[in-house]
Amino acid sequence: MSTEHLLANLGLPYSRPATPGAHSNAQVGWIGLGQMGYYMARNLAKRATPPGSQHLPLKVWNRSIEKAEKLQEQLGKELIAIAKNIEEIVLTCDVVITNLANDDVVREVYEQCARYLRLSPPVKNKIFVETSTILPRLSGELDTLVSRLAHCHYISSPVFGRPNVADKAQLLIVMAGEYRSKKEVAYLLVPSVGRKVIDLGENVEKAPTFKLLGNSMILGAVEVIAEAFTLGDKAGIEAGRINELIGEILPAPGLMGYADRMTRDHYDGVDGFSLDGGIKDASHIRHLTAKYNSPMPIIDVAHQHLVTARAIHAAQKEEGTQSLDVLDWTALIAGSRVAAGLDPFHSRKDKAVVEEA
């Protein structure tokens, strides 16, 4: 089999780095062990080792140390080392990967990293890999910040997939940035963390733009499905039947997973994609539509419904009547259900139409 076919099977658009496995024995650091980051870091720590070599334990840091301790307990000290602070990660690691909650946290962490490296400039190459979903403009700012530091490179690398996909190391990885660094990172992350890399070139703003385009398709589809479930409820069509139809005409695993949640009124965000994360992404998409004068009306509606769901949930928390602490973004169905005169989160409550036997 040719090298090109081997690369294609591995899901990598690059030849191997000039020094094969250059980072196989490097110190890799991970910042951020949230819903996605925990699984990604765990899988990276367990990555396969080339014959005759071994990799150092993954060094991790999280604001709440409990997550880091849980990961270390799960994998052992041979695979996970807990850093005392961000400074230790930055100064001792050759590759630093971040997966964080929002743009403000990302900016704060990278500014800290830059401060430490100005005081202790690195003497060899150091790669920063940002995997969160952020505004493209921020990615450009981070590239400027990191590139001004000696021997430092920045790779924008958002990922597609929910936590259950991250758990299975089946994420779709997008990359943009300096070519040689992308090759190093790609061979580090595939197949340990994801199944494939899509290369968006050297402009680091392209990768987060691409990620937001993908999320716009997913969010738009989730909104349409939510509206269909609501109309079906009003018309007396059983949710299970609608779910069956979605499997027949829209058989995408991700969409079927979201449809299944709506069918079961299962809106727990602990094991899904949080409502706040959905609002953040919808806001970022709307920012792009305004910047490029390219309207996406369905995203405007989805954003309104996400905010409606959060408002209802907040009111329930104040009353002490909420059943969940964190909502999944499929809870946006509350917007169309309330507009249709139905209970926001319970499709089996107060049926508008009696279904025929």
Rank of each mutant, 00 (worst) to 15 (best):
R348E: 13
K182E: 00
I173W: 04
F210Y: 12
A282R: 08
I218V: 13
A235C: 14
G240F: 04
G214C: 09
A18R: 14
G52T: 08
L288V: 03
T289H: 09
T230S: 04
A221H: 13
L56N: 04
I198Y: 11
H303M: 11
V222N: 07
L71G: 09
A101Q: 13
V146K: 05
L342M: 14
L245T: 11
A239M: 11
A166H: 06
A81Q: 14
P50I: 11
H303C: 04
Y154N: 03
G76P: 07
A228T: 08
W30Q: 00
L44Y: 05
M1E: 13
H346A: 07
G37V: 02
V354H: 10
P57W: 03
S132D: 10
D268T: 04
L56D: 03
P51T: 14
K67E: 12
A221G: 10
L44W: 04
D343N: 10
E141V: 03
Y14M: 08
I279E: 11
A83Y: 05
Y39H: 15
E238I: 08
F128V: 07
E248M: 14
L56H: 13
V301I: 13
V190D: 01
A186H: 00
L255M: 10
T289M: 06
S24E: 07
L44M: 10
R137T: 15
Y179L: 14
S192G: 00
D94Q: 11
L10W: 07
S53T: 14
G254T: 12
A228R: 06
